[in-house]
Design a protein around this nucleic acid. Structure first.
Length: 217
DNA sequence: AGCCAGGGTCTAA
DNA sequence: TTAGACCATGGC
């Protein structure tokens, strides 16, 4: 059974150097809410439609009904709008400063984020890693499914968190890259309906077909 | 048609 | 504390 670091190397080997979510912390905050239970293509569509308007200043000046209308393609527009306003207010308490959130204490930031309605563990951890530069491992549906199919007996997210946080250097960049690699792998091979052809983990994956299937057959 | 998409909240037992 | 209903829209 591979450990967290070996799995990382295998993903890196297969997918190469992953990109960062976004260098702009506010973009990370908004998109992490938009993507909840939603296809990434919808997030891109809305983000593109907003043009360069993804700033706290612009969002604060936007009427609630207007923002709802623009977010509609991502689903759950009412709730996501409220959450984005709340997140904006939270960021405002740090004067919309990247440096301010990055110099704050990780545990306090996580508590504050989780106190915002519409922000759960995954969204909070995405913001912690990609916006606040804190090592807080992001566990999403792909992560659970991937580990499960590789045969790990984890029964809850706490055990998954320990597996990664105990096995890796506490470097937020590794956490972010790791999450992005799992995402890339998930999209390519680890959806609910697995695509085993060409998967680097095929030989050790529970969802791999027992009888060999030739690509394209 | 019906399932799926990078979740989160609320409620009942 | 855990499982299930519910939230909404678009793509395939």
């Amino acid at each position: 059974m591979m450990n967290a670091e070996e799995l990382y190397r295998a993903l890196f080997e297969a997918y190469g150097q992953p990109r960062w979510w976004s260098d702009d912390p506010y973009t990370v905050m908004v998109q992490s809410v938009l993507v909840q239970n939603t296809a990434w293509s919808s997030v891109e569509k809305v983000t593109a439609a907003m043009g360069g308007a993804l700033t706290p200043e612009t969002i604060r000046e936007t009427e609630q009904a207007a923002l709802e209308a623009r977010l509609r393609p991502c689903g759950f527009a009412k709730r996501k709008t409220a959450t984005i306003f709340a997140l904006t207010e939270w960021f405002g308490r740090y004067h919309f400063s990247a440096e301010a959130i990055r110099s704050a204490e990780q545990a306090a930031l996580r508590r504050e984020l989780l106190a915002i309605k519409g922000v759960g563990a995954e969204t909070a951890d995405v913001i912690l890693v990609f916006a606040c530069h804190k090592p807080s491992f992001v566990i999403d549906a792909y992560t659970r499914r991937w580990l499960n199919r590789l045969g790990f007996p984890f029964s809850d997210d706490q055990e998954i968190r320990m597996f990664f946080e105990r096995g890796l250097a506490r470097d937020y960049r590794i956490y972010g890259w790791y999450h992005w690699l799992i995402l890339l792998h998930g999209i390519a091979h680890c959806k609910k309906i697995p695509v085993c052809a060409g998967c680097v983990f095929k030989s050790i994956c529970n969802s791999a077909p027992t009888t060999e299937v030739v690509d394209g057959a």
